Deep mutational scan, measured.
Amino acid sequence: MAAGGDHGSPDSYRSPLASRYASPEMCFVFSDRYKFRTWRQLWLWLAEAEQTLGLPITDEQIQEMKSNLENIDFKMAAEEEKRLRHDVMAHVHTFGHCCPKAAGIIHLGATSCYVGDNTDLIILRNALDLLLPKLARVISRLADFAKERASLPTLGFTHFQPAQLTTVGKRCCLWIQDLCMDLQNLKRVRDDLRFRGVKGTTGTQASFLQLFEGDDHKVEQLDKMVTEKAGFKRAFIITGQTYTRKVDIEVLSVLASLGASVHKICTDIRLLANLKEMEEPFEKQQIGSSAMPYKRNPMRSERCCSLARHLMTLVMDPLQTASVQWFERTLDDSANRRICLAEAFLTADTILNTLQNISEGLVVYPKVIERRIRQELPFMATENIIMAMVKAGGSRQDCHEKIRVLSQQAASVVKQEGGDNDLIERIQVDAYFSPIHSQLDHLLDPSSFTGRASQQVQRFLEEEVYPLLKPYESVMKVKAELCL
């Protein structure tokens, strides 16, 4: 049975990233139509530049190519590739079939990587351009969430054990800070992308030097003109047959890092959902379990974690691919890159769409948070109580021993009897502590235990987050809708 299948058929496997999760716009960027249309555009740009620099290419040939950029006979191309065992030459023939007058000058002087690699770089750039505003929107939604809850005390956790208090907004800023680093890295790697350009079979530009009869300047002009037509500021000066596969490492490393950030955020949300302090959106008709109707599973956060793990592992592909590119190139890269580049971007696209949807509907339960604080705060307040007693004339050592005994009794009630923490009640009825009984409410005010959390939130948002989001103001209103 021949390899390949009808990918629109229910009898043929289709990647869930495309069929179930990723956005239509990201799927289109990695589609065959987008790819092969870009090949034709690159052939047109090459012909236009070659004509401008004096090669015998007519206006009629150029116009014929322009008129057929979208006229792609995919069936013919597939048949040609089956016959020739070469995808680029299959599309040269297919393009030439609908451009008979231009057929002889299509791909003039070029090698397969002229269309293959340059198209990949265009796709990487455009895919990054799709991700950047999506990530900015996630940051914006979380920034709104953090600002609104900047002063809401909550129990902090280290080692997932109760620690000092923080605020809900401050905790959210930990998430935002990681995503801001990801946004900066995505922008950097996007701006650092260079075009492969017009380089020939081993990167020496020998074929173009021959076409222009040894004119170095025209060869350099050709490279520059096509690079500018493709919208790049610069091209690699040095290439082998391909652009260095280190570029793929750079791009997928940034995406993998984004995956790590999203995994951490969504894990926190899942843990908070278990504590009943916070939940992701839950639709009115949504079913959490087929057997347990009360369940409210954090399905979206779980999906993000599941896909983020996949995204983090994909960076190993370009690392290994770059390491086995012998001399000017081997074909070890080809099949692998067809999979890992598309999957990385479709996965990143999915987790950003999902995280935006989550961040637009996060639900906080202040009463649950308050109750958990009441359970733990008495123990945390013991040092403040000791200091207040010393100020009232008591002995630190005597007070410490009193607190120690009462704390152990209260802990026994919590752990052995399943009761509430009654340390404060014990202190309130103990005559030894009568000098500070009137101060206990103040000493137990949760806001006095959150330090500068709310001020940190305000400063972080104003100095770091809002300036970073400013270039994306025009796209901030787009909502994230999930079908599944």
Rank of each mutant, 00 (worst) to 15 (best):
E213Y: 00
R194I: 00
H437L: 05
K187N: 15
K66N: 03
V405A: 01
S19G: 14
E60H: 04
A206R: 06
Q210G: 06
S257N: 11
R171W: 00
C172S: 11
E360F: 02
A78M: 11
Q325V: 00
A103C: 04
K479V: 00
T227F: 13
K415M: 02
R300C: 00
I106S: 03
Q184R: 05
K35I: 03
P133Q: 08
N71E: 05
T166H: 01
G169T: 02
V390A: 05
K101N: 02
P318M: 07
R20F: 15
A344C: 07
K295V: 09
G5W: 11
F95W: 08
A344S: 13
P435Y: 15
G116Q: 05
R33L: 09
E60V: 08
Q356M: 03
Q408N: 14
A49C: 07
I265P: 06
A150D: 00
L271V: 04
A206S: 14
W43N: 09
F282K: 01
Q61T: 13
T58I: 04
T313K: 14
A322L: 14
K187M: 08
S9T: 04
V457W: 15
F282G: 07
C27E: 02
A77H: 15
T204H: 01
V475Q: 10
V405H: 00
W43I: 01
C172E: 01
L174S: 07
V138D: 10
Q241I: 03
A22H: 15
E213R: 10
M380D: 00
N68I: 06
D349W: 12
K367Y: 06
P281L: 09
Q408G: 05
L135N: 05
S257P: 15
H7N: 14
A260T: 00
M225W: 15
F327S: 03
T313A: 15
L209Q: 09
I106R: 04
V315A: 03
G259L: 13
H442M: 04
D182K: 13
F236W: 05
F160N: 00
P467H: 07
D6T: 08
A22W: 12
F345D: 04
Q408L: 10
R141E: 14
R171D: 02
C173P: 02
I373F: 01
I237W: 11
A103Q: 01
P435K: 06
F460S: 04
G156R: 03
C266F: 01
H217M: 04
F236Y: 12
L307G: 11
A273P: 01
E50C: 06
D398V: 07
G197M: 10
I123C: 03
R296N: 02
L255K: 06
Q177Y: 05
S207E: 07
N297F: 07
A381V: 14
R141P: 06
C304M: 08
D430Y: 08
V457P: 07
Q458E: 04
V475A: 13
S12A: 15
S207P: 01
I237D: 02
L130G: 04
M89P: 13
R452K: 08
Q51H: 10
I265H: 14
D216C: 11
L355G: 03
V315W: 15
R234S: 03
E463W: 11
I237E: 11
I351E: 12
Q320R: 08
P10C: 03
I123W: 07
V368C: 11
P446L: 11
A47H: 07
D11C: 02
L307A: 13
C340K: 10
F212D: 00
C266M: 09
L258R: 08
T58N: 10
S306M: 11
H93S: 03
H437K: 12
T38M: 05
C172I: 02
R141L: 12
Q455M: 00
F379K: 11
R338L: 02
Y365Q: 09
M225R: 09
R37C: 06
F195Q: 00
R190H: 10
I424W: 11
D445S: 15
Y114K: 01
L258I: 05
S207A: 12
L443W: 15
T450Q: 15
K218R: 02
R20E: 05
K66Q: 05
R337M: 05
V478I: 06
L440R: 05
Q375T: 05
S290E: 08
D6N: 14
L44S: 13
Q205E: 13
P293G: 10
Y34M: 01
R426K: 10
L131Y: 11
I373W: 11
L406E: 10
L468R: 04
P281R: 11
G259R: 14
L44Y: 03
L84Q: 11
V247G: 04
W43H: 12
K477M: 13
E148I: 06
I436M: 06
V219N: 01
I106N: 05
T38L: 01
M76A: 05
A410L: 02
K75P: 04
M26P: 11
T321L: 05
E277N: 03
S261F: 08
S112P: 02
G203Y: 14
P318D: 00
N384E: 05
I139M: 09
R188K: 06
A392Q: 04
T52S: 05
Y472P: 08
L222W: 04
V226L: 12
E213P: 04
N274Q: 07
K415Y: 08
R141Y: 12
Q205R: 04
I386T: 13
V92M: 14
A110Y: 06
T111Q: 09
D191P: 10
V390W: 15
L341R: 03
G394R: 00
M312K: 02
A78E: 01
L121N: 09
P318S: 07
R33S: 06
L352F: 02
L319I: 01
L314W: 03
T204M: 02
E328Y: 12
I287Y: 15
D192L: 00
V138W: 09
T321K: 01
E328R: 07
K233L: 10
D129F: 13
A273T: 02
D192N: 06
R374P: 14
S253L: 14
A3D: 14
T201C: 13
L271G: 03
A381G: 15
M76S: 06
A431Q: 14
S407A: 01
E401I: 14
H310N: 11
E64S: 13
Q161R: 06
R396V: 04
T202Y: 00
F212P: 09
S448I: 10
K170H: 03
L44P: 03
D73K: 01
S448L: 07
D441W: 04
G104S: 05
L46C: 07
E462K: 02
P293R: 10
L352W: 05
L46D: 11
M387Q: 15
R137F: 07
E60C: 14
I424A: 05
E80A: 14
A392P: 14
Y472T: 07
G419V: 15
A344D: 07
D445M: 09
L183G: 08
T321A: 04
S112K: 07
L53W: 06
M387E: 13
K75H: 05
C27L: 10
A47N: 13
R338C: 06
Q458I: 05
